[in-house]
């Protein structure tokens, strides 16, 4: 009797493993065939290799650029700007949210301005930033931060407000003031939301920084794209795009890892 059920359980487990394996296989298949098709299409001139480059050309350029060190410089510049913009945007946004939570008066006063700023396409402010902060690092980082700060403020502020009042009641019944209520209840209860805005902000900061580099920079992956476009070197454009894809994914995964470690306890 028992062995029969064990057998069934084993079959069930095998089925799960098979399914998972199949999914991975198809995923890998899509990736490989994409690059293969791209390579073949370029070599047979189905698409213009001058415009669309090819994996082998991108790879060759990757090796050359690694050896002369220029790729590393460009990548690290962009990565630095993105991480800084991301951190600034998130921290400022959370700080603003805390201030709004603190002062209901201020939050009602600022409400329409937040709506306007949020609906505004932030990249349109690029020229103003360049005029204000000069054509360089500062502008690019500001762009990376600006693009995420308002949405972070709004989302985190809402999370603060949606914390169950009864938790606050508990802490206030011990005589806690507003500051204690914020740090022992409101903020920790909003962790999950803050972490999930981090995930959105990773993507947004990349947008801000790349656009910033389009506008002003002499270095970075965004600069490589614009430069490659201007001198008709599309291999360089493709290389930059691939590197951005890989790095953005890595950052996203890191945040997800952080989420797993921090948020496990928050489901009541």
């Amino acid at each position: 009797m028992n062995s029969k059920y064990e057998q069934l359980h084993k079959e069930y487990k095998n089925k799960l493993t098979r399914e998972k394996r199949l999914i991975r296989l198809v995923q890998a298949g899509i990736l490989v065939s994409f690059f293969a098709l791209w390579e073949i299409a370029a070599s047979r001139h189905w698409v213009d290799p001058l415009l669309f480059s090819s994996p082998s050309r991108v790879w060759n350029m990757f090796l050359i650029r690694i050896q002369d060190g220029s790729l590393l410089t460009h990548t690290s510049v962009t990565l630095f700007e993105t991480i800084l913009g991301f951190l600034l945007g998130t921290l400022l946004g959370t700080l603003l949210a805390a201030i709004l939570w603190w002062s209901p008066f201020l939050s009602r006063v600022l409400d329409p301005y937040l709506v306007i700023l949020n609906s505004m396409p932030k990249v349109a402010l690029g020229p103003i930033l360049i005029v204000g902060l000069g054509p360089g690092f500062a502008s690019i980082i500001a762009m990376g931060a600006l693009i995420s700060v308002i949405i972070t403020t709004i989302v985190v502020y809402n999370a603060f407000r949606n914390v169950d009042d009864n938790y606050v009641k508990v802490i206030r019944s011990f005589g806690a003031g507003k500051k204690q209520a914020f740090f022992s209840v409101i903020f920790p209860a909003s962790y999950p939301t803050i972490i999930s805005t981090l995930k959105v902000n990773v993507g947004l900061s990349w947008v801000g920084v790349i656009v910033g580099e389009y506008l002003v920079s002499k270095q970075g992956l965004g600069y490589m794209i614009i430069y490659g476009f201007q001198v008709f070197n599309f291999t360089m454009v493709m290389l930059s795009l691939l590197i951005i894809a890989v790095l953005a994914t890595c950052m996203y995964q890191l945040v997800e890892l952080l989420e797993k470690r921090l948020v496990t306890r928050h489901q009541s």
């Binding site: 938790y167 009641k169 508990v170 209860a189």
Partner: peptide, 8 residues
């Protein structure tokens, strides 16, 4: 009515 223990 409910315990409102802090889940974290």
């Amino acid at each position: 009515q409910q315990d409102y223990l802090f889940p974290w």
